[in-house]
Design a protein around this nucleic acid. Structure first.
Ligand code: ZN
Ligand code: ZN
Ligand code: ZN
Ligand code: ZN
Lengths: 161, 161
DNA sequence: GGCATGATGTTATTTTATAACGTAGTCAGC
DNA sequence: GCTGACTACGTTATAAAATAACATCATGCC
């Protein structure tokens, strides 16, 4: 799965198309309105497997539309997408990334490569279990756990060992 | 230990004094210069067990000094303190908090109460172990894991059950 | 003292995010 | 169709968080 994030060995157009299809289905099911604008922002978030900043998305959007859009336009779309679980916000990067498993209940755990910038969503139950155990021991009620691990992905380790 | 973060039932002046003493010792040991300014910023970070923003600290600092300080003054001091492991930055809050165990090697794991704002540093090896296991399975080299769990502390659960 | 290094001061700017208010679609019910 | 409520979107201004570039000052070694 980490290999799948290497832009070189996977069909990323398929990633994008798939994400949009799932988003359409999920929103239809929920009666949420995935408008043209929101859908376009989602597509731009999925530009790559690197988290993207709101202003980078804004720039793309402006270029596509020919006219310059306002920051709020993007932030509002992102807010919707995050609420719907289609996109995650990476707190340590002030950036956004498409969710790898929308629909499933999870809070997002990521391995972020500091060399290539790719982020892989892991959502491993073992991490969540460890957090839940420790929280329970201390009587803390978990709402939203943030797990963002910085480091080096396999590919980048190979390049500079 | 979580009870110790309740401002009502602990001597927080002791927390502050203790943090400053340990900081003095650690910096002396390392030959790092804990200047008057840096020491004062550390003290201001320790104002409470709630993470504080750089600009909040800046305001306090200005008030104390009588003259208004520049943001960079605070950011530079914070950078030093974080490097020395005396302070952690909470990514999800853009805020800083005093380290509960300076000197020990760790990356900081926190339980952050959304009601009272207090943050407790946990640094539990089980979370770190789970992260390391999963990273190893994927060939990912861990550098700096960020774990920030939002939720409700015991005290705040009791208040509104 | 003279000099190198690191810390601080000063000013300006960048990046990220939100507030306030108005307009325009969308849809239900009549 | 029209009306009214609701939601989305546009526009402008502003706040909050962080950094850049350059000058000055302090510290400690030679
Ligand atoms: Zn892809
Ligand atoms: Zn996800
Ligand atoms: Zn205390
Ligand atoms: Zn710590």
């Amino acid at each position: 799965m980490p290999a799948a994030t290497n832009p070189a060995n996977h069909d990323h157009d398929h990633c994008i198309a798939d994400a949009l299809t799932r988003a359409d289905a999920l929103c239809a099911e929920r009666g949420a309105r995935l408008t043209a604008l929101r859908r376009q922002v989602l597509e731009l978030v999925w530009t790559s497997h690197r988290p993207r900043g709101a202003y980078a998305i804004l720039e793309d959007l402006s270029q596509r539309e020919g006219k310059s859009a306002a920051p709020l336009t993007v932030y509002r779309a992102l807010e919707f997408l995050v609420e719907q679980g289609l996109v995650h916000r990476l707190e340590s990067l002030n950036a956004y990334i498409g969710c790898a498993a929308p629909g499933a209940v999870h809070s997002g755990q990521f391995l972020v490569c500091e060399a290539c910038g790719n982020a892989v969503e892991i959502d491993d139950p073992r991490i969540r279990a460890a957090i839940d155990t420790i929280a329970a021991e201390r009587g803390f009620q978990v709402d939203r756990p943030t797990v963002e691990v910085r480091g080096r992905c396999t590919d980048c380790q190979e390049k500079t060992p």
